[in-house]
Every structure is written in C-alpha cells, then in structure tokens.
Design a protein around this nucleic acid. Structure first.
Length: 289
DNA sequence: CTTACGGCCTGTACGC
DNA sequence: TGCGTACAGGCCGTAA
C-alpha cells in the first residue's frame, strides 16, 4: 500500500508503540529482501534503544542510541504488524521476514509478500550520503516543495507531469495513487508535458495549484489513516479509509465526481504505470505531449 | 548527462 | 477445476 501517507502512518504507529524502548531481540527469517540484509544486521540492533523516528520520502528511519539508523523501505507490499503476543494461527507467517522484540513486550513483525522492501543500517552521521537517500528531492509535504521549485525542477524534462510527480528525485513521497488524485484535484491533465513548461504563462499558476493539491490530498489521506487496498491493515489492525475517497484511482469508467462535469474517468498507461483521470475537466493544456 | 525499460517477487482476478 | 496472462501501492540498475 505504501505511499507517503501510509508510510507516515506506519511510522507514527511504530513511534507510539516502541519509541524509547530497547530492542531485546531480532529474528531474521531470510537473508535478503530486495537487497541482502546488511552485515551484522542483528548484532547492530540487538541491545540498542530507539531514540527517535524519521521519514525520508517513503523510507522509515529508526534512530538508535548506538549511532546507527535502521533504514526501512516497504516496497509494494511491505507492512508492520504490532502484536502483544503471537497467535498460533498467524496466517502471515509465510511472509514474516523480520521480527523485533522490544522491552515493553511488543512483537513487531515486518511482513512483505513481494519482498520489494528493504532494510539497511547506516551511521547517523552518514545518513544523508546513503546511496538510496542522497538523491531524493524535498518531501512532498515540506515548504521546500513549492511552485517555484517544481517548475524549475521539471522544466525541459522529457516526460509528462504525472511521471515527474512519481520521480522521487524531484519530490519525495508521491506514489501512483496520489499522483493521479492530485492531478485530478488540481484539474491538470496527466498528459501535460514538462518540456518547455516554464515558457507557458499558465504554468506558474498551474504549478501553484498542483502543489496545493498534492499537499491537500496527502494530508487528507493521512487523516483518513491512508488507503487500504487488498487486505492491508494498519499496524494496529485498523483499516485506512481514504480509498473510499478516491475520485479517479481505480475508478475507470465511472462518472466524474466534479460538479457540472459529465466526464467519464479514463485509465491509461504512462511510463508503464496506470494513470486515472477525467479528460473532460482535467484541462487540456496547449503544451500537451 | 538523460530517459526507457527489464527485472525483482507473490497474490489475485479473469478468460478460456 | 486448472492453466495462462495481466496486473498490483516501488524503484534500482543497466542499456541506449
């Protein structure tokens, strides 16, 4: 499930459950996820205490008192389950790859069927130079992500605006659901070309609207507990419910929700990923591809 | 340098 | 019921 809102919620749940606790034991059920686990993975975690939590784009950062940071990415299907005990009928057992045992007697399970997720450990002082983090752009919810920045960053890229929003080196945290939803909210067509975009007089205003929409949608999704697709659960077992507020994602062939718009939601492929949009109210720009 | 796309995995849905 | 195919919340690494 995890885009920025889901990652943020999972981070907050973990923080609430185990911040300031120590990691009394770690069970590692396989040698790799997307990448091999780092050298001495368990040794570096065991016995340490958690000092704080952070997030960079879709990465969760868990800071430890031994000057290491645990770096976690959930990939497509990664999730955490926080439990007080382990039921015998644990149906996730097959995909439970790492289990953390904390000093407040909680069991934190990392579950990831597709194993596109990853874990790594870095020194706190070197976190910004980590190979997977160093090129990531400003967070989608930060002030640094604004119209001026976005316009400058994407101008003359040979891709469309939707693909640009998914590029974590441009802006951190937006995924395939919220890219479509934000473009719909701002009434911008996903076909809009970045090439030469700075030269169009409507671009500044469009980018202002888009940035506002991105933040609005992401914040609203966080408030809603994120989006639950398939059988995903939040770490406490609850369902997110933002999926009930999708206007375009997974809404192919449905009528557009916007007042006075009689358009039908379309599904297309852009850079190999699905894009959903209304070709009636998401303005055709004169600089579309 | 930039951009395009194969590949990593499992699970599910659907057509035959 | 089974089997083949397409697709799914991400993104690295390599080719071009």
């Amino acid at each position: 499930m995890p885009e920025l809102p889901e990652v943020e919620i999972i981070k907050r749940s973990l923080c609430k459950a185990i911040d300031k606790q120590s990691i009394v034991d770690v069970k590692q059920n396989r040698l790799n996820l997307r990448f091999p686990f780092p050298l001495n993975f368990i040794d570096k975690l065991k016995g340490s205490s958690i000092t704080s939590f952070g997030r960079k784009a879709k990465y969760i950062l868990i800071y430890l008192n031994n000057n290491y940071v645990l770096i976690i990415h959930l990939g497509m299907s990664g999730n955490f389950l926080i439990q007080k005990n382990t039921p015998d009928d644990d149906k996730n057992i097959k995909h439970t790859h790492v289990v953390f045992y904390t000093s407040n007697n909680l069991i934190i399970k990392y579950i990831d069927p597709r194993r596109f997720g990853l874990m790594d450990i870095a020194k706190v002082s070197e976190i910004n130079q980590h190979r997977l983090l160093k090129n990531i752009g400003p967070d989608a919810l930060s002030n640094e992500f604004n119209a001026k920045y976005l316009l400058k960053k994407i101008t003359n890229k040979k891709c469309n605006i939707k693909t640009a929003l998914l590029n974590q080196n441009i802006v951190g945290g937006i995924g395939n659901i919220y890219a479509s939803e934000a473009l719909y909210h701002s009434r911008i067509s996903p076909h809009t070309s970045c090439y030469g975009i700075v030269n169009y007089e409507d671009s500044k205003n469009n980018m202002k609207r888009l940035v506002k929409s991105v933040k609005f949608i992401l914040n609203k999704a966080i408030e809603a507990g994120g989006s639950t697709i398939s059988d995903h659960r939040l770490p406490n077992g609850d369902l997110g419910y933002f999926q009930n507020e999708f206007n375009v994602y997974n809404c192919e062939s449905k009528k557009c929700n916007r007042k006075h718009c009689s358009g039908i939601i379309k599904k297309i492929k852009q850079s190999g990923r699905s894009t959903f949009f209304c070709d009636s109210c998401q303005e055709l720009q004169d600089h579309e591809i």
